[in-house]
């Protein structure tokens, strides 16, 4: 088990391992998405309060969950890269950032689309939307710092510090935004906090959640492979691999 992880830390093995895993991940992501969307749009019952418009949660909620999850992945792998100087951890962290930002944007857009029929406006300073917006700022800062520093190793380490600072701050930001929100517009908050969800609504949601996770894994591996190609272009194993595939 340990030696497996150890081997994964070498770019060459990671590259090959990811290459084998990608088709499997790709197909299972596609199947799960089809099942999830079918269940969510056609099988799940209509909400007695919100009508059909609630169905956007099958995109919105998984995207919002993923936006937090990806930040954690980024910070943890950044920390691993910082402490144990593991190259692959840096690659994972830097590949994850744009994906996390994309999930955050998706959560924000679907949230505001949902807001139109619900509240009659595109945007509302709801606690969760506001937190999500600040999370987007954190992602954008991370990406901006990454692209501003030329040296790859320096960029990875600096971003790891930033991500770790962000991780300490996210609960504080989240709590303070919640508190600020209850003070200013206590009425709207409760609309999100639905009582226990019906199972027929929950199953599509969990399916979609799984599909999002696999999709993240898939795109992360693909991006990491591209990054490895770029970083290791001068190494012998890479040159051998390219000449072999050229034959």
């Amino acid at each position: 088990m340990w030696s497996f992880f150890h081997r994964l830390a070498s770019p060459k093995h990671f590259y090959q391992f990811a290459g084998r895993l990608i088709p499997w991940l790709g197909w299972s992501t596609l199947v799960l998405f089809i099942i999830g969307i079918y269940l969510g749009l056609f099988v799940a019952p209509t909400d007695y309060q919100q009508g059909e418009s609630y169905r956007i949660i099958y995109i919105h909620v998984p995207a919002a969950w993923m936006s937090m999850f990806v930040y954690m992945v980024m910070a943890i792998s950044g920390g691993i890269g910082l402490i144990w100087k593991m190259k692959m951890a840096d690659v994972v962290a830097s590949s994850a950032a744009p994906l996390g930002a994309a999930f955050t944007i998706l959560a924000l857009v679907t949230g505001s689309l949902w807001g139109k029929p619900m509240w009659g406006t595109w945007w509302i300073w709801d606690a969760r939307l506001t937190s999500e917006l600040i999370l987007l700022f954190l992602y954008l800062g991370f990406i901006a710092l990454q692209s501003a520093i030329e040296d790859r190793r320096t960029a990875a380490n600096a971003c790891a510090v930033l991500a770790l600072v962000g991780v300490v701050n996210i609960p504080i930001i989240h709590y303070s935004v919640e508190w600020w929100n209850t003070l200013h517009q206590g009425a709207t908050v409760t609309r999100f906090d639905k009582p226990a969800m019906a199972t027929s609504m929950l199953i599509p949601l969990l399916t979609m959640f799984l599909a999002f996770k696999l999709y993240f894994g898939l795109t992360l591996l693909m991006r990491a492979r591209v990054e490895i190609l770029e970083r290791e272009r001068d190494t012998t194993w890479m040159k051998e691999m390219i000449t072999e595939s050229g034959k």
């Binding site: 700022f137 954190l138 954008l140 800062g141 901006a144 600072v165």
Partner: peptide
Amino acid sequence: SLLVLPLYIP
């Protein structure tokens, strides 16, 4: 400012 301002929000 991009890095720091979001952290100032609380």
